[in-house]
């Protein structure tokens, strides 16, 4: 849980940081030219960075495959396990997103500037949730 929260926080923080850099009124042309390398590609940089979340989901499911199989063995259903997995992931994602919205409000940024990240991360959760059924038969 801590690991996933940390991964989400990193993604939102990166987006927030780049949003913040955009608002800076720098007199240094050199610094502006350097930061432009990142600001110009902000959505791409942040989206690529979210890959660490994919790595997290992947490794977690790999490590839990025995547990999933055992749960099914003792009466759990794939549907229940998948639902719980999605619910738990969203329980971590939503507070982190709300925290980032609060940070946006505090810094006077657009509320929805990081909403695209939520969509990307939810997509990851849904894709990884589909992997749960792969471990139905061990």
């Amino acid at each position: 849980m801590l690991e996933l929260s940390f991964a989400y926080i990193l993604c939102f923080s990166l987006n927030l940081l780049l949003d913040y850099v955009k608002t800076l009124d720098l007199d240094s042309y050199l610094l502006k030219a350097f930061l432009k390398n990142f600001i110009d590609y902000q959505p791409l940089v942040v989206s690529l960075f979210t890959f660490i979340v994919i790595v997290f989901h992947y490794q977690m499911l790999q490590r839990k495959k025995v547990e999933i199989f055992c749960r099914i063995l003792v009466g759990g259903t794939v549907f229940n396990i998948t639902t719980r997995y999605i619910r738990d992931s969203l329980t971590i994602l939503i507070p982190v997103y709300l925290l980032s919205v609060l940070a946006n409000a505090y810094l006077d940024f657009n509320f929805f500037s990081n909403f695209y990240l939520v969509l990307i991360l939810i997509t990851y959760i849904l894709i990884s949730a589909r992997q749960v059924r792969k471990y139905e038969n061990f």
Partner: peptide, 17 residues
């Protein structure tokens, strides 16, 4: 476990950039 390799490539790509 190609995902881990891709993850490493992307992280390195950012560091290199």
């Amino acid at each position: 476990k190609a995902i881990l390799g891709i993850g490493m490539i992307l992280l390195l790509c950012m560091a290199n950039y």
